[in-house]
Simulated scan of single mutants.
Amino acid sequence: MEFRKKIEELLHQFLAERTDLFLIDLKFSASDDITVILDGDSGVTLQDCLDASRAIEFNMDREEHDFSLQVMSAGLSEPLVTPRQFRKNLGRELDILLADSTKIEGELAKVEEDHITLVLRYRKPKEIGKGKVDVEEDKEIPYTEIKKALVAIKF
């Protein structure tokens, strides 16, 4: 069996046993440096990364094919890419860059299979008179329009 296919198969077998974890990315470099990025419904622990690494390494023969393996969790700097990741972050503030380069920030209120709904909160000028009024608006955004979505980090 081809090296890369074997790695993918071992990883998918591990994830089939650990249904609380899911794959975000699997990268292979030209020199067979493998990077696995995982996420989980309740986060990813160091032990989860070790278990995934062992599931791959203990079933591969380094004498047959040498490689390096790095298993990590998706950090805050990693964009959200799957509906499952969005679902895990319900109620959190997101910074979203749309395909047309528009930037939006809002609270993630709903996650569907084809779109998300953000609650946008902002101030706008009153229609009559001086001053501003607070506005709260729901905005549905299809996944196809999202170029990059990050959890907003607030201090």
Rank of each mutant, 00 (worst) to 15 (best):
D32V: 04
L21K: 08
H12V: 00
L108Y: 03
K110P: 05
E2P: 15
F86Y: 13
I34W: 06
V71H: 02
S101P: 05
F67C: 03
E137L: 04
D20M: 10
H115T: 01
R54V: 04
I96N: 07
K148P: 04
E136Q: 14
K139P: 08
D39M: 07
F28M: 10
V36I: 15
F67T: 03
G43L: 13
L23Y: 01
V119W: 06
V71A: 02
T35D: 08
P79M: 02
K6G: 03
F3L: 11
V81N: 03
S77F: 01
I96F: 05
S101R: 11
G91H: 06
E8G: 02
K27V: 15
K126G: 01
K88R: 15
I141A: 10
E57D: 13
T19P: 10
A152W: 03
R4M: 07
E140I: 11
L21G: 07
T19R: 15
E136A: 10
F3Q: 09
K110C: 04
L38K: 09
A52Q: 08
G91V: 09
M60W: 04
E63N: 14
F14G: 02
E78W: 09
V71L: 00
K126L: 00
I96V: 15
F67M: 01
R92D: 04
E57Y: 02
E93T: 12
H65Q: 11
L15T: 10
E64M: 13
I141F: 08
M72A: 14
S31C: 12
R62A: 12
E137Y: 00
K27I: 15
D20R: 14
F155T: 11
L118P: 04
H65E: 13
E8A: 10
D100M: 03
L90P: 05
F3K: 12
S53W: 05
Q47W: 08
E64W: 06
A16S: 14
V119M: 13
I96M: 06
I7R: 04
E105W: 01
S101L: 07
F3D: 06
I7V: 14
G106T: 06
I24Y: 12
L118N: 03
D51M: 04
Q47R: 12
G129M: 01
T117C: 10
K103G: 02
T19Q: 15
Q70L: 10
A109I: 13
E2Q: 14
F86C: 06
M60T: 12
E112Y: 11
F155I: 14
T45K: 11
K110I: 13
M72D: 00
E64A: 13
E112F: 07
S77Q: 05
K130V: 02
A16P: 00
I96K: 09
I24A: 11
F3P: 06
R84D: 05
A30L: 11
E78L: 07
T82W: 05
I7D: 05
K139E: 13
E107G: 04
P142I: 02
V44C: 14
E9H: 15
L15K: 02
I7Q: 02
L15W: 01
G131A: 09
E113I: 03
Q47Y: 12
E105M: 07
P79I: 06
E2L: 03
E93I: 06
E17A: 14
T82H: 06
I146L: 02
T117A: 11
R84N: 08
Q70R: 08
L46H: 09
